[in-house]
Measured scan of single mutants.
Amino acid sequence: MAAAAAAGAGPEMVRGQVFDVGPRYTNLSYIGEGAYGMVCSAYDNVNKVRVAIKKISPFEHQTYCQRTLREIKILLRFRHENIIGINDIIRAPTIEQMKDVYIVQDLMETDLYKLLKTQHLSNDHICYFLYQILRGLKYIHSANVLHRDLKPSNLLLNTTCDLKICDFGLARVADPDHDHTGFLTEYVATRWYRAPEIMLNSKGYTKSIDIWSVGCILAEMLSNRPIFPGKHYLDQLNHILGILGSPSQEDLNCIINLKARNYLLSLPHKNKVPWNRLFPNADSKALDLLDKMLTFNPHKRIEVEQALAHPYLEQYYDPSDEPIAEAPFKFDMELDDLPKEKLKELIFEETARFQPGYRS
């Protein structure tokens, strides 16, 4: 834990890192770190609560700039109880001085990944967590956004079992017609939660990839272990087919990539493993919904509104309290091709509203 900075004593240090967030945020305490930044909790002297502050230093890398800009653009436009918001952003007053960006968010005690390492969940908890994931996802999908990296560590939890989806750095506007060349190379989302079509096709992607990830998360809540822990690309596919069985001819016809289709045709026939054999203690309604989410063919996979209306979630289902976005989200430009200098300018502009004396 960093010592509390005395008023006016300059930035606090946390594990050798400068955290320049005073005077409003003090009493910093280390939480963890990701690929390009550290997260601390801090005391907000204005709202009198502890908050989470993520320090991001992305400006050396085009990919990190892209992810940072995506996350900020999306989260500043989203407003939903099951999606983490941005409360404040701290950065230098000029673009030349801006080396880091500090993002202030609600402090959540833990995440689903940490929880599943230590606790076996009751059916009631599984049901409530799944409902909140789908409630947040309904809003995301209504904005025409794909999260693309749903996994237990991106689901934040607090002691009252509130759940918030975080990390929109890989999110995209849904565009089933656009052929994202190089899709697989830039697709760094965790393999275990990846839909089979991501490994088999490169053309376009749809909201059904997020539903697949939610199915993987439900299976993990039922058993405290990942359902498809593939060691590499082909191993991942083999794990999936080992449980779902061989795809039907109709399902194979959806695979545009001939090499991928021929690979699947070359494999020995596998039978589907019954879900109640894998999860003998699970609620039968939970397994019915799991089956509809972990469907090989993305066109037959359940959609988020149908999933919310499934009998497993009937005690929570309330369409009048499951809000959607006001308007579909649009990125003005494809960020993939922009140089990091341009992305830095866009991050600077996007964060201006939090600067003292800002006038829109």
Rank of each mutant, 00 (worst) to 15 (best):
F296W: 13
M13H: 07
L28S: 08
P226V: 11
P323L: 09
D336H: 12
A260T: 04
F78L: 01
Q66T: 12
D177K: 13
D175S: 09
K340D: 02
R225H: 04
L241D: 06
H232D: 11
D100E: 02
V188C: 03
N154V: 02
I198N: 00
E81I: 11
N297I: 00
G230P: 09
M13Y: 07
D20R: 14
E109A: 11
L150T: 13
I53C: 13
V101P: 08
L264W: 10
L150C: 10
A286P: 14
I72T: 10
K272I: 00
R70T: 10
R261G: 05
L28Q: 00
S122Q: 09
H120R: 04
R79S: 01
D291F: 07
F354D: 03
P274T: 01
L252F: 13
W212S: 01
L150D: 03
R172W: 05
L290T: 05
Y358C: 01
A309I: 15
R225Q: 12
R172Q: 01
A35F: 10
G34W: 00
P226N: 13
A5C: 07
I198Q: 06
L155F: 05
H232E: 04
A174M: 14
F19W: 13
E314D: 03
D124F: 07
L335D: 12
P176F: 07
A174R: 08
K151P: 06
K99H: 07
K342L: 14
A35G: 05
H269L: 01
P356Q: 14
N253R: 07
K54V: 01
P298W: 12
L313E: 03
L234R: 09
Y317S: 10
L308W: 06
A325D: 15
E109N: 13
I103M: 08
P328D: 06
G34I: 05
E305D: 00
R359L: 09
I217K: 03
T63C: 06
D321A: 01
A174W: 12
D288Y: 00
L308M: 01
P196L: 01
F183P: 05
P152I: 10
I103A: 07
I302N: 00
H178N: 01
L258F: 11
R91Q: 12
K259Y: 04
L241G: 04
L289V: 13
G16P: 07
R70N: 08
N87S: 13
L75S: 08
G245A: 03
P176S: 02
G10Y: 08
I324F: 01
D332Y: 00
V46L: 08
T351L: 09
G169F: 07
K270V: 14
Q355E: 08
Q17G: 12
K300L: 10
I324A: 15
L343V: 14
G242L: 09
L237M: 06
K138L: 07
L289H: 06
V51E: 10
I243H: 08
D210W: 03
L218W: 05
F296D: 04
S41M: 08
I56M: 11
C216T: 09
E60P: 15
H80R: 12
V304P: 12
E81F: 11
E197G: 02
E349C: 15
L115N: 12
A286T: 02
R50S: 00
L28C: 10
E314F: 15
P229S: 01
S248H: 13
A189H: 05
L156P: 05
I255Y: 05
K300Y: 10
K344A: 10
K342V: 13
L134F: 08
L343G: 09
I209K: 03
R24C: 06
L252N: 11
K344S: 10
G32P: 05
R15V: 12
P196R: 01
L75C: 13
L287Q: 01
K207W: 06
G204K: 06
Q97R: 07
S29Y: 14
